[in-house]
Design a protein around this nucleic acid. Structure first.
Lengths: 194, 194
DNA sequence: GTCTATATATCGATAGAC
DNA sequence: GTCTATCGATATATAGAC
């Protein structure tokens, strides 16, 4: 990259992806409150008007980041649910869910804390894809579909609770393993899930 | 209240409490993103400078709302943990925690989603008071303090997970009872909490 | 597809009068 | 303890040139 200034790199074509990347960086450094189209543009060295060619408004950009975050989370969950007993896979998925929140905090926040409309089709679909990764092992554990559904909801709530407490209340080294343990306890006591 | 306009009511004395009340209303109607000192002042019919006599800045006012929210939650939890077996009290506390989030959504958000510094002494103390209500029954259930601590963390994470999913993902009628059931399962399977 | 320039709006916070 | 007035910063979004 000889003389071409930073502001030349993204012209004509690659801006959309660069906007998402820079948004993630910005969310990571300054949080959701400080996120703005203006600041993203500034960081990329493009005009404030440029992003509006790719995203209709601020929420559209945030939603694109959320979808990206969902893809990352989904991939991580797939990786850890490849083998083992159904119970092990549920526990591993929960631990990984919490690990994702800890290691990719801004992505996790974009996914859940960005105040986006959850009825958006893209976000809806993403939630279902991720939920399916929990439901599959639960089906193998439970006798009926209804029971599997209950167990899945309880497991996701437990993982999500550990993740949000971790993100909101500071770092806890053992949160991922704690979440996995809680899920094992939940499975052991699942006859109480009404 | 004959001729005295609304803007007269809060002069000289009662503004502090009125600011907290109005902040809660504003958070309820428009969410945290739309919360501002300016809008709170506008709603009360006072000058934008007036709140700064009572709160140093925006965060101080939000923190006061959070402390109020903590008091309300604490009171609700005390009310439902008065009697019953330790397991029943833990389950009841969890259900009430979720019910609070559902019924007092803005207060719940002020408590956890306001991006406040958790090292604030007032908020720290509040978290401990609420945690103690979960720890007491857990102590009666568990043999050692360490086990009680683990069970408490798992129960709070479960309740918090159900609450945040409820608040973020729309209304679910049965979330409080689901949380209680999950806690019962957690207690039954507590030997897995490493 | 990006730029310059701008309209429009709102915010947090302060100074000084009363 | 509240008001008026205001500064300075920042935001979203659009219009029109290139």
């Amino acid at each position: 990259m000889p003389d071409t200034a930073r502001r030349e790199r993204y012209h004509h074509g690659a801006l959309r992806a660069a906007l998402i990347d820079t948004s993630i960086d910005l969310l990571a450094e300054r949080g959701l409150e400080a996120f703005s189209m203006a600041e993203v543009s500034r960081r990329l060295g493009v005009a404030q008007a440029a992003p509006y060619r790719h995203f209709a408004d601020r929420d559209e950009l945030l939603a694109a980041v959320a979808v990206h975050a969902g893809d990352v989370l989904h991939e991580r969950l797939v990786r850890v649910t490849g083998d083992g007993s159904p119970a092990q896979r549920l526990a591993a998925a929960s631990a990984e869910y919490v690990r994702f929140a800890a290691e990719q905090r801004p992505l996790f926040q974009a996914l859940y804390g960005a105040g986006l409309d959850k009825r958006r089709p893209d976000l809806q679909r993403m939630g279902e894809r991720i939920g399916a990764l929990f439901l599959a092992p639960a089906r193998q554990i439970c006798g009926t579909d209804e029971h599997a559904q209950r167990l899945t909801s309880a497991v996701i709530a437990t993982a999500h609770g550990h993740a949000t407490l971790l993100v909101d209340h500071g770092v806890d080294e053992n949160a991922p393993e704690d979440a996995a343990a809680a899920v094992r306890a939940l499975i052991a006591g699942r006859r109480w899930l009404t």
